[in-house]
Nucleic acid binder design. Structure first.
Length: 199
DNA sequence: GTGCGGATGAACT
DNA sequence: GTTCATCCGCACT
């Protein structure tokens, strides 16, 4: 079943990011359903987090979805060629989000392979925030969409991820964030082959 | 209007 | 480990 909006509207993005591990992310784009188990996330902690786009209360056309009530998507474009998917959490006007960094593909493999121009499964398909968006067909059209919609949603398949199976480490690619770059806010499922490489 | 750098991935050596 | 593809958003003027 789909996660209820109350799941996203809890007030601790770090806790939500860890609870998202083992949940199943689905997209229905061009009438093709794809899905995968979330195996890696990162937390972005709002106006006091220097790595967060909403640091210091920055509110622009791009960052608007972060300020929505939890349970919507925040998709943005980076490096001129990659889309990155975030799950907005917490209440309205509290801009916190969980970045989905990697999934294990389980549904719509044919569509994923077609989008990536591959003919067999390998670990590069969905390991990395840009890679998984391409695999699942996520673009800016999927920005600011409710996770209760029939385009983009997350289900609970009763996959249990114990706290001891969660690997915690500093976030990737945010060293400009000074002391906040050291926060252990990257969460991976230990022993999953589908997480992005350690750096 | 212009300039600059980024929450990256993939294909190289 | 290195390199490059390649462009939007933001902070200026």
């Amino acid at each position: 079943m789909k996660l209820p909006l109350s799941f996203y509207r809890q007030n601790d993005v770090v806790e939500i990011s860890q609870k998202l591990l083992g949940k199943v992310l689905f997209t229905k784009i061009n009438n093709e359903i794809c899905g995968g188990i979330i195996v890696e996330t990162e937390s972005y902690g709002g106006i006091s987090d220097k790595a967060c786009h909403a640091y210091n209360g920055l509110l622009t056309e791009r960052t608007k979805p972060l300020y929505e009530n939890g349970g919507v998507s925040y998709v943005y474009f980076c490096y001129g060629m990659h889309h990155l998917l975030n799950i907005v959490t917490n209440k309205k006007n509290i801009p916190q989000a969980a970045l989905i960094r990697a999934v294990e593909p389980i549904y719509g493999i044919d569509t994923i392979l077609k989008r990536k121009n591959k003919n067999k499964i390998d670990y590069t398909l969905t390991s990395g925030p840009g890679a998984l968006c391409k695999a699942l067909g996520i673009t800016k059209k999927e920005n600011n969409i409710s996770l209760t919609s029939s385009i983009l949603w997350i289900e609970d398949h009763n996959i249990i991820v114990k706290d001891t199976e969660i690997l915690k480490s500093p976030r990737v690619g945010v060293k400009y964030a000074e002391e906040d770059a050291l926060l252990p806010w990257r969460f991976r499922i230990k022993n999953s082959k589908w997480t992005s490489p350690a750096k």
